[in-house]
Nucleic acid binder design. Structure first.
Length: 210
DNA sequence: TCTACGATTTACT
DNA sequence: GTAAATCGTAGAA
């Protein structure tokens, strides 16, 4: 009999390992499309499918908060190893959820820009009062944070082992094409603002902008 | 300390 | 289509 706590956790089988996240943001941003972002909120399980992402690729990327190796209170989370959450407030109003990628001290991250609600729609609607159309509930980084009740308290959250917010593998292997486009809202990023580092599922009606 | 502004959303005209 | 909302962070002083 093994001592308790050493059994492999069955819940973790459907998860991605740290290795999966400890790669270039550009790779991870594509590989997580079609997989699940799950939020457990007072006993309710919200399941969504990731349909749109953006990659922010470390110290050389002028669009990245950590470009030039800027290491501040806000960017600290990006220096964690891949698999942690980086959450921050934009425009004083909206939270953005990122997944930290790459090895420790290499500050890459993938911004989740849009998801498709699959389960827990009732809870999502409760979190998004006044929004009528289903696709308007989660088709933007700030919108999906509201819908899944994600705020700064989830900054640096462990998405590999955590129970409240995590990614789950889609057991089906959905077939879709990936569109590459310019990242949104980073006009200050010089030559990097035109990089096609925004990725989304072509057929999805849930992406933020076409 | 002080100031400018942002990985956006919403409600207007 | 345009503009207001709203506040923590970054960088300068």
């Amino acid at each position: 009999m093994e001592p308790s706590g050493t059994f492999p956790d069955p819940m973790l089988k459907s998860r991605f390992s740290s290795d999966f996240f400890e790669r270039d943001a550009l790779i991870v941003s594509q590989d997580i499309l079609g997989h699940y972002l799950v939020r457990e909120l007072n006993g309710c399980k919200i399941v969504t499918m990731i349909v749109e992402t953006e990659a922010y690729c470390g110290v050389t990327d002028l669009g990245c908060h950590a470009s030039g190796n800027r290491r501040t209170k806000r960017t600290e989370a990006m220096f964690l190893p891949g698999g942690y959450a980086y959450v921050y407030l934009v425009y004083g109003l909206n939270y953005c959820l990122n997944i930290v990628t790459e090895k420790k001290d290499n500050p890459h991250a993938v911004l989740i820009r849009a998801v498709e609600p699959l389960k827990g729609l009732e809870m999502i609607r409760k979190n998004r009062p006044g929004i009528k159309k289903t696709c308007d509930l989660t088709n933007g980084p700030g919108k999906l944070s509201k819908a899944l009740d994600i705020d700064i308290s989830l900054n640096k959250y462990d998405l590999v082992k955590g129970r409240e917010l995590y990614l789950e593998k889609n057991p089906e292997n959905p077939d879709f094409s990936i569109i590459s486009a310019k990242r949104i809202g980073i006009d200050y990023a010089g030559e990097y603002k035109d990089k096609l580092w925004r990725k989304y599922i072509k057929e999805s009606p849930f992406v933020s902008k076409k």
